[in-house]
């Protein structure tokens, strides 16, 4: 059984104000749950103190798998399983294997890395994301602060957010039912109640 969650949401309108805001807010000891931006804001991950992405490592490992698969496939098929004389070339003619080996390296690296990205970031077609503010994919940067994880009171955090040039600060609660983002419940809700809120019309 999941509990109700209480957040304080700060809305920022400018990427540089957000960056400075994140630094100020963290310096004051407030723990930020997450920041949602409509486009990648560079250095935001540093300001939030995230560790560097290790996606390149995944890409390398999958690429190396691709290389190995390609070389062994070609060697085993044309060198061991059914050798054929083609143009008098050796059965295992490595220079001829280069193009396919390269292509399979790229294929494995790209698909493996994107797959890793999808799985680690929990991106999937049947995901119903928990959105704090619909303007977060439009033109505003949304900062969410989990009240349960901070020792400061709501008023204090609200003041810190406003001091950091948040355009708007409001409280957002996710009740039990809404908090559990089950895809079928989300669909049921969507098609029974319709779209209740749209980013197309400003609040």
């Amino acid at each position: 059984m999941k509990k109700n969650k209480h957040f304080l949401v700060g809305v920022f309108g400018d990427q540089d104000e957000l960056l400075h805001g994140v630094e100020d807010i963290r310096a004051k000891g407030v723990k930020i749950h997450e920041v949602f931006t409509p486009y990648p804001v560079h250095h935001l991950e540093d300001a939030l103190g995230y560790k560097r992405s290790r996606m390149p490592v995944a890409a390398f490992l999958f690429g190396a798998t691709g290389t190995t698969c390609a070389i062994s496939m070609q060697t085993l098929m044309s060198g061991v399983d059914w050798p054929m004389i083609i143009g008098g070339k050796p059965f295992i003619s490595l220079p001829d294997f280069v193009p396919i080996t390269f292509e399979m390296t790229v294929l494995f690296a790209a698909f493996g890395m994107v797959g890793t990205f999808m799985v680690t970031q929990n991106l999937k077609p049947h995901k119903a994301p928990r959105l704090f503010d619909l303007r977060g994919t439009d033109d505003k940067m949304i900062m969410a602060i989990d009240l349960a994880k901070n020792n400061l009171s709501e008023e204090e955090i609200s003041k810190i957010l406003k001091d950091a040039h948040a355009e708007e600060v409001y409280r957002k609660d996710f009740a039990d039912a809404k908090n559990e983002r089950n895809f079928f419940k989300y669909l049921q809700d969507l098609f029974i109640n319709g779209v209740t809120e749209s980013g197309r019309f400003p609040r």
Partner: peptide, 22 residues
Amino acid sequence: LSFGWDGSAKTWMHYESVSLIL
């Protein structure tokens, strides 16, 4: 189609890395 995208800073960080490697 959006795969439940929410635009969180962490996802963007990995996303940028994935785009660059791709």
